[in-house]
Simulated assay, not measured.
Amino acid sequence: MGLSDVLARAAVTRCHVFLAEALDGEGPRMAVERELARRGWVEALSPVDADIFCVCGDVPDGQAEALDRLWDQLPGPRARVNVERPDDAGPRLDGCVAELLDTAAQRRHETDRMVQPDDAGMDHGDGGDMDHGQMDHGGMDHGGMDHSGMDHGGMDMPMPGGIPLAGEGTDRDGLNLDVLKVPLGPYLPYWPAGLVLHCELQGDVVFGSTIDFPFGTPESGPASGPDERASLVHHLDLAERLLRLAGAAASGTRTRRIRDAALDGAALDQCRSKVQAEQARVRKDWLLRRTLRGVGHIPSGSGLPALEETDVWARLLGMFDAAAGSTAGTPPAGDLANKLPDLVRGQELAIVRLIVASFDLTPAARNAGVPG
């Protein structure tokens, strides 16, 4: 056994996995997350930090190119897998381990990648062999979307990696500043599957946005259905992702454990008791409360009566209430999404992520992977 084989075996004991949730991918994603926790593996927050690219759910027509762009950002050695059903998570990840341990095949793949032309097929002149597909904009991954068809202030020229140059626009003080058009989604970590928020940025502030749903128009999630277990799992999943975005990793981990226990068939009364205990801990977290209170406030007359006079903090607590069965859920996701451009206008990108995560923007009602 050579040195490369020894290093490969050591590396696969703690693989980094980037998850891309596609259509009907909530159940498969949660199953993969449980497998990662069981194995002691790590969820990568960007493709460039990943060994494995895991697509959860069915890939809609027209989305293959976006996923391929993300796949291209993974450094070698690497492996790619699709998990369409929760039961497939373990075997498919085992297959990735075998693929990563095949060092000869990995070397061949890397050689093939080095001789491939860049994705834009452009002559970069003095840029030589630079790979512009891995540019980092504010530390955030933008879903591998192709922006070359967007209007960039009259500029009709393709840019490396599909990233546009900034145009010009007037800010709220009347100054003429650069405006960069950047889409968020649909494959960001802790982001609603199938949502793309096309933002116009001045610095890191959103001054305008539009929404798009490449997977189809969202509907109400499992909260609207009669399955109490599915509702508990779904709302804990929402709360866990919001907690992690807000930096409350310990609370997010505990919330995920309750969610996973419910997925494993634990008694609902026991799960609800743990939900109430965790909500009590969250209420006492003064730093989290200070971070989220007042963010994404929805005023009266907004057209969302169930959410008027709420902010991200109140909606987080509402997720725990819904998981415990004390509330009926949230308004239809389509109504929420139509309000997003107004809610995020004038907000920094980090705040936009929190606002989006505070809503239930599930693409469709589904109970995949939830035991009866």
Rank of each mutant, 00 (worst) to 15 (best):
G138R: 03
S326M: 04
G221P: 07
P192S: 10
S148G: 07
V81E: 00
L23V: 12
P158R: 09
P158T: 05
I211G: 04
P183S: 12
R107N: 06
C271R: 01
G143V: 01
S46E: 15
G27Y: 00
K339N: 07
L243Q: 08
D24T: 10
P164G: 14
A324C: 09
R289D: 05
E65T: 15
A105R: 15
G161F: 01
E84R: 14
L354F: 06
G25L: 05
H16Y: 03
L245N: 14
H198G: 06
A98Y: 01
P186T: 03
G194A: 06
D321R: 14
G57F: 00
D146S: 09
R257P: 01
A66S: 15
P192D: 12
G318K: 13
P77V: 07
A328F: 03
A166D: 06
G325Y: 04
W286F: 03
A44K: 08
V42P: 01
L45T: 15
R80H: 11
G247R: 08
V6K: 13
G194P: 00
P214Q: 04
R259Q: 12
G216E: 10
I298V: 15
A120V: 08
P341H: 07
V179A: 00
G2T: 14
Q276E: 14
G247Q: 09
N338S: 07
F320H: 15
I52L: 12
P60C: 06
G143L: 01
P47K: 00
T217C: 02
C15H: 02
D119F: 01
R281G: 02
A250L: 04
V282R: 01
D237M: 02
L93N: 07
G57K: 01
H124W: 10
P160F: 03
V282W: 00
L184P: 01
I211M: 11
G203N: 00
D118T: 12
